[in-house]
Design a protein around this nucleic acid. Structure first.
Lengths: 164, 164
DNA sequence: CGCAAATAATTTGTACACATACTATAATTT
DNA sequence: AAATTATAGTATGTGTACAAATTATTTGCG
């Protein structure tokens, strides 16, 4: 029974560590690129889409549209991004990278989940399965099997708008 | 190999889910108690200590002292907490709960890590060991074996002051 | 067609979260 | 005892993060 207590305490410690690591990494990125975590994440998504409207961007980075307004404001102020009113539906704006934004996105580091994926790929199948089972157990404990997964970024996590 | 890809994607999804769950829970608490996650956490710690100074409180909840000033400000404004200048060392203030604060802390819910611990306690030893190994693998991937663990609370995670 | 409902973005207000800089007090050095 | 250094708390400014209210535009329905 004593061993159980040890294991439980270890697990909790490690969950905490992972939280911190993710947080630290986003701070690291901040130092290296001059962009904050959410800002980098945003331009990565914009880059993948060539052009995207604000709601869709908010949806993709799992943030509130109101929050994204501010993020885009700052990116625009730094001339990394451009806003244009959509011609077809004039309620929408379309957001694109400037040349400066494009060159920045090229040599900006991977976000947390890229790192995780790369690390996992090096593990043998049986270990992967074990980790898979374990994570499922944790998710089950937290009782949220039905909540759809969102992206990781330490302190920038938040609830997305309702639904797909 | 296809199975590996599936497992990797599952794992990442579940890490994301856990992040969200922790975040959602702190929002849940907010609705039920009128206190935000950090505020609740703070008064729990204050309650455990009867009286605590600001730096120590900041250390215990793993936040910057500057952040904690604001949190204590708001708690004080709601008359849940009282600040008094220490007589022995007049640089320090001591923070205590008011009667209102004490009654509130009594019937406020557990924080995230309490939930996790309770859930883990119900698992059989072999499963605990598996989860333990798995978390260690993840921590290793993120390459932070040496970082000391801090507490969990979704969006309120941050780096503590530089150690003791 | 005309106007109400729906949608897209923004504005405003609250609360973290941190870095930097500042004030007051205490401890240490000289 | 005076000067230096360290410590405790605060003030200020930037950047998330979200809810509620606002504005402009489109769409849908009678």
């Amino acid at each position: 029974m004593d061993q159980n207590i040890q294991a439980i305490s270890d697990i909790i410690d490690n969950v905490r560590r992972i939280f911190q690591i993710l947080h630290e990494q986003s701070k690291q990125v901040e130092k290296n690129t001059g962009l904050t975590g959410p800002q980098l994440w945003a331009i990565k998504i914009i880059n993948e889409n060539k052009s995207i409207n604000l709601s869709e961007l908010a949806h993709r980075i799992y943030l509130h549209p109101t929050t994204v307004v501010g993020i885009v404001d700052r990116l625009e102020k730094h001339d990394l991004v451009r806003r244009t009113r959509s011609r077809s539906d004039r309620r929408m704006i379309s957001i694109e990278l400037t040349e400066k934004g494009e060159s920045l996105v090229k040599d900006s580091p991977e976000v947390a989940q890229g790192l995780l994926a790369a690390g996992l790929e090096e593990l043998p199948p049986n270990q992967l399965e074990e980790i898979d089972r374990s994570m499922k157990s944790l998710v089950k404990i937290f009782g949220a099997q039905k909540i759809p997964p969102k992206l990781i970024l330490s302190s920038e996590i938040s609830l997305p708008r309702e639904k797909i």
